[in-house]
Design a protein around this nucleic acid. Structure first.
Lengths: 201, 201
DNA sequence: TCGTTTTTGTACTGATCGGTCCACTATATG
DNA sequence: CATATAGTGGACCGATCAGTACAAAAACGA
C-alpha cells in the first residue's frame, strides 16, 4: 500500500558518489547533491535521512561498484600469475586516462581518510577495512606469481604493493605523473623479485 | 617611526600551523586561528592579509621547521650509510608517539593534497615540489647505503621508500599501525637489497 | 608634541551551511 | 472510496563562514 518509489536509489547514490568523490564530503553542499541526483532536498532527506546517510550509501556503493570489481581477479579462488601486474597496469592507466574520476580525484576513501570526516570512527573503520582488503588482495597476487617465495618475503612484497597503491592515490590529485611512477615502481619491484627467484645467481 | 610589532610572527605562524595541520585548511575557522595565535582578527588580517596568506606562511614554516630538519641528514653533502634507516625509524617512532601532531594528523602537505585546497595551483605546486624533495633525499640515502648499485635499481629503491613514506602519511590518521607497517616495509626492502648485494649467491 | 604604525574590540556584511517544516500532488493498495 | 507512502517546492531556521569598516588606544621616532 502506498506509492512506489519512482527514482532508482542506486543511480541516485552513484550520482552523489561522484560529487563526494570529486569534492570531498565537507565541500559538497546540499544543492550540489540535489543537482547531481535530480532529487529535491525533501526526497533526499526522506530517502537517506541526512547528508551523512547519503555519504555512507555512497561509500558502500564505491566499495561494491568500484573497488571490488577492480580487485576481483585478485580475490577470487584461483588467481592468475599475472593478475597483480594487470591490476597495477590497469590502475596506472586509469590514473592517466584523461578526466575520469580516478585520474582527477584519486580514491574516495583515501581522500576521506585525510579530511575531517576521516576523524569519524565509522569512516575510519571503513577505510581501515579497505586497506586490509587491499593488502589481502595484493598478497594473493604475489602468491600467485611467486608461489614458492618465503612467507616474510611474500608479506614484504605485498606490503610494498599496498603502500605504493595508496601513495599513488594520495598523489594523483596533485601530480599524476608521480602517481603513475609509484605504480610502475610496484611493478618493477615485483619483476625484480621474479627475476631473482627464476635465475638465482 | 611607528609602533613596533609586539608579537612574534614566527610563533604566531607556528600556532596557526598546528591548527591547519590538525584540522585542515577548510575546517579551520577564523576564531580557531584567533584562539591559537592569541591575535585578534584585525591583527591577523593586518599581518597576513587573508586566511590563505596565513596558510601559505604556515606551509613555508612547515617545510622549514618540520620537513627539512628531519630530512637534513639525507640532504647534506655527505650522507651516512645508515641515514636512511635512521630517517625511517625516526619517522616510524614519531608516528607512533602518543598525541603528537605527526601521529594524529600525518603530514600537513599530504593532507592538503587530498583536500579542496589541493586543487589550487599554488598549493599543488608546493606539494609536488615537496614530493620531489623527498624523493631526492631518499635517493641520496640509498646511494649512501649502496654506492655500487646500478642506477635503475637505485631509483626503484628510492621510489619505493618515497611511496611508502607518503602512504604512511596518508594512513596515520585512520590506522596508525598500518602506517608504521608501511615504514617497516621500506626498511625491510632496503635491508634485503643490502643483503643481496653483500652476499651474492 | 606630532605623525606613524601596531594592535585591539566590536559590530557588521552578504553568503552559505545542514536541516526542518508544511502544504500539496501523485500513485499505490485495500 | 479511504489511507498510506512517494515526491516536490519553497519558505524558513539558527549557526557559521571569510572578510570589512571604523574608531580608539598604545608605542614608537622625530
Amino acid at each position: 500500500m502506498g506509492r512506489n518509489q519512482t527514482f532508482d536509489t542506486a543511480a541516485a547514490v552513484r550520482a552523489a558518489r561522484a560529487v563526494f568523490w570529486a569534492r570531498g564530503y565537507e565541500a559538497t553542499a546540499l544543492p550540489d547533491l540535489e543537482r547531481a541526483t535530480g532529487l529535491s532536498r525533501s526526497s533526499i532527506y526522506h530517502a537517506f535521512a541526512s547528508k551523512r546517510g547519503l555519504f555512507d550509501a555512497a561509500v558502500d556503493s564505491y566499495l561494491d561498484e568500484v573497488v571490488r570489481p577492480r580487485l576481483r581477479p585478485l580475490t577470487e579462488d584461483d588467481v592468475a600469475p599475472d593478475a597483480l601486474d594487470h591490476y597495477l597496469t590497469g590502475l596506472r592507466d586509469a590514473l592517466l586516462r584523461g578526466d575520469t574520476l580516478p585520474a582527477t580525484s584519486g580514491c574516495l576513501l583515501v581522500n576521506a581518510a585525510n579530511a575531517p570526516i576521516g576523524q569519524d570512527d565509522g569512516v575510519a573503520a571503513v577505510v581501515e577495512a579497505y586497506a586490509a582488503e587491499l593488502r589481502t588482495a595484493m598478497a594473493a597476487g604475489v602468491r600467485a606469481r611467486l608461489p614458492h617465495l618465503a612467507d616474510d618475503a611474500t608479506q614484504t612484497l605485498s606490503d610494498v604493493c599496498t603502500g605504493l597503491v595508496i601513495s599513488a592515490f594520495a598523489l594523483v590529485r596533485v601530480d599524476r605523473a608521480e602517481a603513475a611512477r609509484s605504480l610502475d615502481t610496484a611493478r618493477a619491484v615485483l619483476a625484480s623479485a621474479v627475476a631473482a627467484t627464476a635465475t638465482p645467481r
